[in-house]
Design a protein around this nucleic acid. Structure first.
Lengths: 337, 337
DNA sequence: GACCGTCGTCGAAGCGCTTCGACGACACTG
DNA sequence: CAGTGTCGTCGAAGCGCTTCGACGACGGTC
């Protein structure tokens, strides 16, 4: 059997409460006592029993991460967030319970009301998301990565997609480009109400209008043919498009570059290209792309932070938007006269 | 505060042990009592406290899933296994704690010796894998999905990659093909000692020799150029290769089809193509490919089953190989004379 | 020197559940 | 009808931990 706190106390010749306080640091402990306890712990390979700790301490040190991974979502990007959340949680000594697919919603109720978890990280938030409702009504420490339509009473974190869209538009507008395109996600993604593609697209269109640009939108299917078609359409019959922003999966972006190349268009001489809100590495693309990165670790570690702050104290509901940054890799250039 | 078993007992007018037995079914309960208890549970929205249950019952109903997700591994395929494990676990009323990256090894010790989890599912097993050692020495209920070099004392489950390789070889050999190629993973994957690519490749080479075939191996990098080069090499200067087996990521497979098409080679008229041990859907490829599928749900649910069997009883160490199946989609044809 | 505060330690009371042993109430045996 | 089971229920003893209150031993104050 595994050693218990009783064994440690006996070996160290102190009471169990002393051991507990030595471990938690909630009361001062004499130097010599502490050392005896520490060596007893080492000797016995003592690890506190998680169940007992949860029961007595009312903390499990587990966070639920809910990520539906809906059929048409793009796994790598979403998993990057799950991983980032897991890593961030470990930095605070929390473990992560994974709730996916149907459990993403159903399991949320179960794990919170059985006090299996201390808090919840909600990923891939839709504009209308059951889980947002659930979190609100359950009144459990939680942070959403993404912004639902109704943020009332919730703690949300996300990249500032609107600002990212403006940043991309400005870059092209400042370069003198007049006709710009946005290559987005497959139509089904917009239909589902996934929030960030919509937010990005709206801000893109709005700000392009403010900057007096002509805008063309594409929502290619994932197939080669789909990309080819969308690119052809966006370029226009006269191929007068000179600025292209891509806010989509890596395969689509790579294929787009292939298609541009095949069409004899050079980047950035003929077309300036920006990869926006991408979770993957665009520096290995051919050519490497300018990017406004979406860094999972950033939003997730903030979400974990805010959740833990709610567990240990109290946090005002809020929406925190992370300002975007622009990484220049030479895939944009001023428009040639 | 959440309702406890005490509240339920009070409302139902019985003792707490009766409630507990009603819940677990470990002793018979009178019909009327059971109903009173059930309605009390509904009324109070009672959910047993996970920590207390773990402490008293010595079961947490949590399984650890360890998946290192090493830098060069292909996320979608690996995550498919994580998801399958989570889903399978839920079917047995177990939740899943995710251990990735550095925690995949380090966290294993922590979560088992603190009794946070009842068992462990080990994914992406290397030929030489620390986690196999750890599981052996920890003596914790566990199942590995994949086969380490030393399986002594371990419970392992996996697709029978050797049989899959033979199946692919036989299909081509029976079709009269004499020169066959295997397009595998990037070199780094083989170098790392990931076990299934190696097992597949070895069996492929061995069995092709038995069938008197000439074998060409390719291990393309993920880039377009990498694929193009590997395909050119495998086809040979005379393009005498007529059978191709792909055991690699979906992007590489798609690109290979693009490259074949660009080279004017038709599938299956000029080249017969088989996708082997693939976790993704090859029916949407152009053309749809014959496939020997690797079904994560299959190995994972068996792994979960075997782990839970170890928790509740005892299971002999073993290696269970899942027989491969062949799905015909018309991408192979007899060799033209 | 009486008084106070801090430090370091202990004992004991839970936390909410499972499970063992006990026991009354029956329904069978023979 | 005494003996033997099974059924349905209860009380109580933990499971291993945290935390509260208490208390002796000091060192400082006035």
């Amino acid at each position: 059997m595994a050693a218990t706190i009783n064994d440690v106390a006996r070996v160290a010749g102190v009471s169990i409460s002393t051991v507990s306080y030595a471990l938690s640091g909630k009361r001062p402990i004499g130097e010599k006592t502490r050392q005896r306890i520490e060596s007893a712990i080492l000797e016995l390979q003592y690890q506190p029993n998680a169940g007992a700790r949860a029961l007595a301490g009312r903390r499990t040190y587990i966070l639920a991460v809910t990520e539906p991974l809906r059929p048409d979502t793009y796994t790598p990007a979403h998993m990057a967030f799950v991983l980032a959340a897991a890593t961030a949680a470990r930095a605070y000594d929390y473990d992560v319970l994974l709730l996916t697919q149907d459990e993403a919603t159903g399991g949320l109720h179960r794990v919170t009301s059985s006090r299996l978890v201390d808090g919840v990280i909600v990923l891939d938030v839709l504009a209308e998301d059951e889980r947002a409702e659930l979190v609100r009504s359950l009144d459990v420490p939680a942070a959403l990565v993404g912004i639902p339509a109704d943020t009332d009473g919730l703690v949300c974190v996300d990249l500032d997609f609107e600002a990212a869209a403006r940043l991309a538009v400005d870059r092209l507008a400042d370069g003198g480009h007049r006709v710009v395109g946005l290559l987005g996600h497959p139509p089904s993604v917009y239909a589902r109400g996934s929030n960030f593609p919509l937010r990005f697209r709206e801000a893109f269109v709005t700000h392009a209008a403010e900057r007096d640009l002509e805008v063309r939108l594409g929502a290619p299917e994932r197939t080669i043919a789909g990309v080819r078609e969308a690119v052809a359409e966006i370029l226009g019959p006269d191929r007068d498009l000179t600025g292209l922003v891509m806010h989509c999966e890596d395969t689509i972006q790579m294929r787009t570059l292939d298609v541009l190349c095949a069409a004899g268009l050079r980047v950035p001489q003929d077309v300036s290209v920006i990869s926006a809100a991408s979770t993957f590495d665009t520096s290995t693309f051919a050519p490497p792309l300018d990017v406004i990165p979406l860094i999972p670790a950033e939003s997730c570690s903030r979400a974990v932070e805010l959740t833990i702050a709610q567990i240990t104290g109290t946090v005002e509901p809020r929406v925190e938007l992370i300002p975007p940054t622009y990484v220049d890799r030479g895939s944009t250039a001023p428009r040639r006269p």
